[in-house]
Nucleic acid binder design. Structure first.
Lengths: 187, 187
DNA sequence: TTACTAAAGCAAATATAATTGCTTTACGAC
DNA sequence: GTCGTAAAGCAATTATATTTGCTTTAGTAA
């Protein structure tokens, strides 16, 4: 298995090699390559296959690792429009756009296919929870009634991810619909 | 790829072999075997490996096929308690119990890891839609106000599957909570 | 700088997977 | 029954994947 960090010598070459490997995997996933193998990755990364064999138990372990890294990268801004409804709508649209990009979908699937321990170690959902919490906090600050963070996760985030993962259609209208539904719960 | 049905000679041996293969895969998945290979399956099924190579492109294709078959098997009864709230609660509990069983979870993951085409061809969600529709129909027949079928799928089914697939905790209380939330939408 | 050593590269050896041509079995149509 | 054929079994071959011992490279600490 082995993990990214904790290398005793993270300074130069190892880091460079690791980076090349991650990039190679990213490219291959992005290109929709069907059967990704160590040899393929090594070739693309300009790295010796042995390195891969020594570092990861199998290709899946590496793919999961890269997927987790890619999915938990920070970045999405938290909308701050002055009203919860528009905040949530904006946010739902950002998520939609993010997870429907083909290689994002592939990463999601790769991660989700993995064993519990790996999936749990991935903080995608924690990240979403924090973002939701921030929007709710702002709403409360303005004296607005708001759904709970749990409700936002269960009824906006979950359905969106669920649809992507089960290859069901996801679009703007669907995202807006979910926001409307969740707001019906607070009235 | 090749699919289950449409064999020109479904009568005896082929069917028996296919069955042995499906059973073997089921067992291996159930046992949580990490790296399932054709050889492993063939050995377990008491079948020649060549048969597997000739019939499926790769192990994943076979796993997906078995997963889809297992997940779309009929069986869950549709609760009919006389009130929508209890129907939905019963139903949510049935789903919860079903998808949290370890080898069910594994099947779900296997399916979800697959390519779009395979996932789409799986009617798990259609099945759920029909069941939800039936309960809503009964409620309307009694003159009860009810959420839409879409709302039930988005806000009860989706969160449940989402939690399982993302290795988040799922239990009875969670299922009940979701039902309560969705009913808040109709008032 | 220098010495030490973790980690990468290389190449040969081994193991496992996948393919292929041919033989055998046993449905299914007659 | 008997015949034709689809699909399974077998075995030899080929291709890939994986392991291993050794060499080289280059961070890091002194």
């Amino acid at each position: 298995m082995s993990s990214v960090a904790a290398s005793t010598r993270p300074g130069g070459r190892s880091a460079r090699v690791l980076n090349a490997i991650y990039t190679a995997v990213g490219e291959l996933v992005g290109e929709g390559t069907e059967r990704i193998t160590f040899s393929l990755i090594a070739e693309r990364a300009g790295v010796n296959p042995t390195t891969l064999y020594r570092r990861w138990d199998d290709v899946d372990a590496l793919l999961e690792e890269v997927a987790v890294a890619a999915l938990t990268r920070e970045g999405d801004p938290i909308p701050d429009t002055g009203a919860l409804e528009t905040d949530l709508t904006e946010w739902a649209l950002i998520i939609t756009e993010d997870i429907t990009r083909p290689h994002r979908t592939r990463y999601l699937r790769a991660m989700v296919a993995a064993r519990d321990e790996i999936v749990s170690s991935c903080s995608v959902m924690e990240r979403r929870r924090e973002q939701a919490a921030e929007m709710v906090r702002r709403a409360s600050g303005r004296g607005q009634e708001a759904p709970t963070v749990g409700q936002i996760l269960d009824h906006i985030v979950a359905p969106l991810y669920h649809h992507v993962v089960f290859a069901l259609p996801v679009d703007e209208d669907y995202a807006r619909l979910l926001v409307r539904d969740v707001l019906l719960m607070v009235r």
